[in-house]
Simulated assay, not measured.
Amino acid sequence: MRDHLGVETQRQWSDKAIARTTPCLLGLFSIVTLLATRLSCHANLQVSAAAWYRKQRPTFADTLAAVRQQLWREQGFLTSRHASKPAKLRPALRDGIVHALCYAA
């Protein structure tokens, strides 16, 4: 898995712990990949870029951020029940915050 997918060495010391977590990691990777494939049929996945590094295709971090963003969009933002009148953010500001949180989460 490390050679093919670039999964880093796990922090567990026992063979049993590694045997438990490796299938979970592979399963999560597979679920995110399948969800991203479904998303990419409807819209192009955003590719984050830095001034010093251009990418042609989305990385797993880009894919994970896109899946998070879609899940959050479907759930909506939950607000406190105690707030009398929540202030609404401008759509551009809200989308920028969501984009940043998707990569930070």
Rank of each mutant, 00 (worst) to 15 (best):
L101Y: 12
T9C: 07
K16A: 13
D95M: 02
W72L: 08
R90C: 01
I31F: 10
T21E: 03
C41V: 12
T37R: 12
S84H: 05
C24Q: 11
S48A: 12
A83G: 04
Y103H: 14
R81E: 11
D62P: 09
G96W: 07
A66S: 15
A87P: 01
C41W: 12
L89W: 05
K55I: 03
R57F: 07
G27V: 05
Y53W: 03
D62Q: 01
R38E: 11
L45W: 05
E74L: 10
T9V: 14
F60M: 05
A100T: 06
Q70K: 11
V67C: 00
K88I: 05
L101V: 07
P58R: 00
H99V: 01
G6F: 01
R54S: 14
P91E: 14
L93S: 12
Q70W: 06
C102R: 04
A51C: 11
S80C: 09
F77L: 10
T33E: 02
A100E: 03
E74T: 02
T37F: 06
L101H: 09
A87G: 04
K16R: 13
D62K: 08
T79E: 09
T63G: 02
A17K: 11
Q56G: 08
Q56I: 08
L26Q: 14
C24T: 09
T9K: 14
A49R: 10
T9F: 06
F29P: 00
A87E: 09
G76F: 11
T59A: 07
H4C: 06
V98T: 03
F60R: 02
R57G: 00
A87F: 02
L34V: 10
A87R: 11
S40L: 04
Q12R: 11
R11P: 11
D95G: 01
R68G: 02
L5D: 09
Q75K: 10
W52I: 05
H82A: 09
L5P: 00
T37Q: 14
Y103Q: 05
S40M: 13
L71M: 15
A104E: 13
Q46G: 07
Q56K: 13
A65E: 02
D62M: 03
Q75D: 12
R54H: 10
I31A: 10
G96M: 04
G76N: 10
T22D: 04
D95V: 00
I97Y: 09
M1N: 15
D15A: 15
L28E: 03
C24M: 12
H4G: 08
L25P: 12
R68Q: 12
R94M: 09
T9P: 09
H42I: 10
L93T: 15
V98C: 06
D15F: 04
L26M: 13
A50M: 10
Q46Y: 10
A65T: 02
Y103E: 00
Y53K: 15
L26V: 07
Q69K: 10
L35R: 14
P23S: 04
R20S: 07
P86E: 01
Q56F: 04
D15S: 15
T9H: 09
A66V: 08
T37I: 10
L71P: 00
T21K: 05
D3F: 08
R38V: 06
L35H: 00
T22C: 01
I18H: 00
D3C: 03
F60D: 02
K55T: 04
S84Q: 06
T9W: 04
L89N: 01
V47W: 08
T22K: 06
R38G: 01
D62W: 01
H42K: 15
N44W: 01
G96C: 02
T9E: 15
L25C: 08
I18D: 00
W13D: 08
K88A: 07
F29R: 14
